[in-house]
Design a protein around this nucleic acid. Sequence first.
DNA 1: ACTGATACCGTACAAGATGTTCGGTATCGG
DNA 2: CCGATACCGAACATCTTGTACGGTATCAGT
Lengths: 187, 187
Amino acid sequence: MDRRQRKTRDAIFDAFTRLLGRHAYNQITVQQIIDEADIGRATFYSHFETKDYLLRDLCEELFGHIIDTAMGLPHGHYHCTYGSADDSVFLHLLRHLQENDRNILSLLASQNNEMFLRYFKTNLKKLVKTQFADTGKLRESHLPEDFLVNHISASFVETVSWWLGRGMKETPEELTEYFEGIIAPLI
Amino acid sequence: MDRRQRKTRDAIFDAFTRLLGRHAYNQITVQQIIDEADIGRATFYSHFETKDYLLRDLCEELFGHIIDTAMGLPHGHYHCTYGSADDSVFLHLLRHLQENDRNILSLLASQNNEMFLRYFKTNLKKLVKTQFADTGKLRESHLPEDFLVNHISASFVETVSWWLGRGMKETPEELTEYFEGIIAPLI
DNA sequence: ACTGATACCGTACAAGATGTTCGGTATCGG
DNA sequence: CCGATACCGAACATCTTGTACGGTATCAGT
């Protein structure tokens, strides 16, 4: 990809991220993004059709990257016992989040975090499905597999959101214990 | 309240609900709402400052009503056993939802359901807190009470969302069993 | 039935956002 | 070095927003 394109694209993403930290998504105008990114008007529209597409592309880059990284990890490394969860995928995800790559935390904690949490959950479901469905663990339950996959994904996202909303007081290890305390009884 | 005011307010709510079934929230303009409700421009702005306030008021009426109704029920009627859940607050809520009062289901199943699910969850937390915190059941857990209240509320909302997204194939009784299968091990 | 209050209408308006077009300039990859 | 192209900046018609106004119809209370 052309270096100019990359620079412009990143400038837009950065400006958008900064604005999302200050204003609600609905209140942000394309004009503000253009001003904050310091680019020409036509340039923005040559990159993104609308504000919504910009959001979509940003989320796909962010969560696609995080989930794909976790997808590369070996499967089935999930332990129900509380102490030995060092190789839990969820702990790995939390540590990755804590690095705050591309300010992903500020987005997940912003006023409009629902949008990002939804994208997060959508991508996470794929991961949960491959992690658990393959092992067959979920089939032992009396609950529908699809229901459980959805519940586990949503609960993790909700746990992260709870964590961020209260200032990330817990360590990733503690939070993983909380989360496993919730879903371990199910599988 | 003046009869004229009530009629206008309802007309706006109805128009807004109809539009939300057809378009995404961001795409809906005040002008569209005005046209759909068939009212004067100034009239809309004398009722609601912005589109966001309209959404807020609509949600407060809808979920405030549902939760307040459930709040009136006797507390602590929650049973962990699977069969005897006839008086569960959650079953009561599901049945109330199924009546589809003011098209609340079409809103919870619309493209922008996150917004409504958030309002739903916010109100539900109050209910969960009074239902469980008083009984002291949650304190027996090794997990923080606030974390559990949040998890239970979020899980119920997520269960309802899952139910709607797949066409409400299950009965309220079946769905209550699913839900209790998820949270019963925790309390 | 009468009356003052007020909610509504219709129109108009300024300010700003949106999405597109165009020619000129600077930077890119090869 | 050169052709391709990404950027700029300005201009543009169109739409949305929020407010203001006087006139009309409906309301609640006596």
